[in-house]
Design a protein around this nucleic acid. Structure first.
Lengths: 193, 193
DNA sequence: GTGTTCGGTCAACGCGTGTAGAGTGAACGT
DNA sequence: ACGTTCACTCTACACGCGTTGACCGAACAC
């Protein structure tokens, strides 16, 4: 806007798309799907609302673009049972501690209870694969259920700390939380088989 | 509607109020605050939208009335440290297993991430007191943080099971979930002091 | 019986939303 | 140099929302 020294069309587009997605991530993450409006995102990105439509098609697609990045679970499949608990704990946290990825993860999690599509993505594309990997590592009869509980606990702490902003949990140091959560998750994976 | 055999005015009012709150609980619980409309609630209750306004004032008040019941934490303060873990686990579950109270609890939890008031109520009026009670029972330096993590885990499992409807967790028997979650919560409260 | 209260309906308001289509001016290929 | 492409804006539509005030008829008090 204030800088305009001969920018190529491709660059211009890339920049605006990025500005839109960034603004969208911030608002979806802070307000959730319903309270976030295309007009609001456009205003924060400094462009016209209609341009958002033109570039992303509709609000749903914009949300997908905003929530897509930031929920990877790499480096969990190879762990041994004993490492796995702490790895799983650190996994979701990582998305929120990294400023780069936090936006997307927050957007997805914020809306997962009220927006059906977000809930489906979280359930089927984030939690299910993680649970499958964990269940495969730990054995026993209840492997799947144990993995699900482990996942749910991590989810709960993440939600309470970063979204609900429970005063105690939000103020605590990350390592302290992991120190307390770690043994609990170990208890989940190790009691059975 | 089909029954009309001389109903007193007081009875009539009580019945409609109840019908409205019931419908509101169902819709707030299923759809969340934003997607639930006064028109929709009125339709399900079989009355005019304006009547909801007349009886409850505004949407916010209706939500409060719908979400108020169902989140009690009685019988947690007296427990010893060893009992406490399982008691805390059973506590939030109870609200969801009892068909009577489930509506209110679900309404509150469904909207806690997207509706600021709901989040504040859950944080300050449900989680904080529980944490204080738990922290008082278990000792040690990190008592508060431990209590917070314990609460967050319970919250996570409840959300995953009843709201996100994680297939594994939702299908599992309640006692199985408690059997796995119990030791984990015990690990949280017992590792420290 | 009569006047009043009150549960309930009806029609309408102002607003914010997602979205569509025509238009504009600068970067582009030739 | 010129016609085209394309990022971008402006205006506007249709809709659903929360909310309001006037109105109606039956239960009430006397």
């Amino acid at each position: 806007m204030v800088e305009d020294e001969r920018i190529s069309r491709a660059d211009r587009r890339r920049r605006t798309e990025e500005a839109i997605v960034t603004a969208a991530r911030r608002q979806f993450g802070e307000l959730g799907y319903e309270r976030t409006s295309i007009r609001g995102v456009a205003a924060e990105a400094g462009i016209d609302p209609a341009l958002v439509m033109q570039l992303f098609g509709n609000k749903e697609a914009l949300f997908s673009a905003a929530a897509s990045a930031g929920v990877g679970l790499e480096a969990l499949t190879g762990a041994t049972t004993s490492e796995l608990a702490r790895a799983a704990a650190a996994h979701l946290f990582a998305d929120f501690e990294d400023a780069e990825r936090r936006g997307g993860a927050e957007a997805l999690l914020r809306s997962c209870l009220t927006h059906p599509a977000a809930g489906a993505v979280l359930r089927d594309q984030v939690m299910a694969p993680t649970q499958a990997a964990v269940a495969a590592t730990i054995g026993g009869d209840d492997a799947e259920l144990r993995a699900a509980v482990l996942n749910a606990c991590t989810l709960g702490v993440t939600i309470a700390r970063y979204l609900l902003e429970d005063p105690v949990l939000a103020a605590a140091d990350r390592t302290d939380v992991e120190r307390i959560l770690g043994p609990a998750l170990e208890a989940i994976v190790s009691t059975g088989a």
